[in-house]
Nucleic acid binder design. Structure first.
Length: 206
DNA sequence: TAGGCCATCTGGTCCT
DNA sequence: AGGACCAGATGGCCTA
């Protein structure tokens, strides 16, 4: 953060390679034709062209700096939105901040858990009795981008339907209440939150 | 020290 | 033309 601006200044001075115009930057960059050790005759021409090149470079640099600034603000907005998402996710105070990918994955599963809870509650309110079986977790492989994220953990989440096999009427092991995919790769507290969601559901509706 | 995460820069592409 | 979006590259910081 603090070093950002200094970085900006230095990096922008570099401007490594930008098309034909950039080949004129600096005294040793007169393009391919004349080597650095030019005779003094060409100094005049160099000067004349140098001014326009310099002004063009100033414009380019100014545009780049503005683009950098916009990009920085864009990423800050993205991070703000991510922070807001972290804010609405259940968390324990002693836990470290979720990483970006963890936040997205946890939000994905949390939404799924909430919607499953509502669905089961509605079903039970309608007809009573035992809780219906859980539906499979939303397949992250259904869309390409999410699938990449989930498969990065090494689990074959895309192929397994990940149904809950245990009898909902006797949730002896809460782990069985959630599809494996829903818990894969999460920290303990995230796992606990999701489990709590389902355990409480069985407390309320059974 | 290696690996993970992050912020930033940068050039390309698409859209308005 | 200018801005938004994206992905790759790079370097810093932190942790196991």
């Amino acid at each position: 953060m603090d070093s950002v601006f200094s970085d900006t200044d230095t990096s922008c001075d570099l401007f490594p390679h930008t098309d034909d115009e950039d080949s004129v930057r600096g005294s040793s960059m007169r393009g391919a034709s004349p080597p650095p050790d030019q005779p003094q005759q060409q100094k005049k021409r160099r000067r004349g062209r140098g001014r326009s090149d310099v002004s063009a470079q100033v414009v380019k640099k100014s545009r780049r700096l503005k683009a950098n600034d916009r990009e920085r603000n864009r990423m800050h907005n993205l991070n703000d939105a991510l922070d807001a998402l972290r804010g609405v996710l259940p968390a324990f105070p002693d836990e470290t901040k979720l990483t970006k990918i963890e936040t997205l994955r946890f939000a994905h599963n949390y939404i799924w858990a909430l919607s499953e809870t509502i669905r089961i509650a509605d079903l039970q309110a309608g007809r009573g009795g035992e809780p219906p079986p859980l539906r499979p977790a939303p397949s992250p492989a259904s869309d390409g981008s999410a699938g990449r994220c989930w498969s990065s953990g090494g689990s074959s989440s895309s192929s397994s339907p990940a149904y809950c096999a245990s009898s909902p009427g006797s949730p002896a092991a809460p782990d069985d209440l959630l599809p494996r995919d829903a818990l894969f790769g999460f920290r303990s507290f995230e796992k606990n939150v999701l489990l709590h969601l389902f355990v409480s559901q069985f407390v309320f509706y059974s």
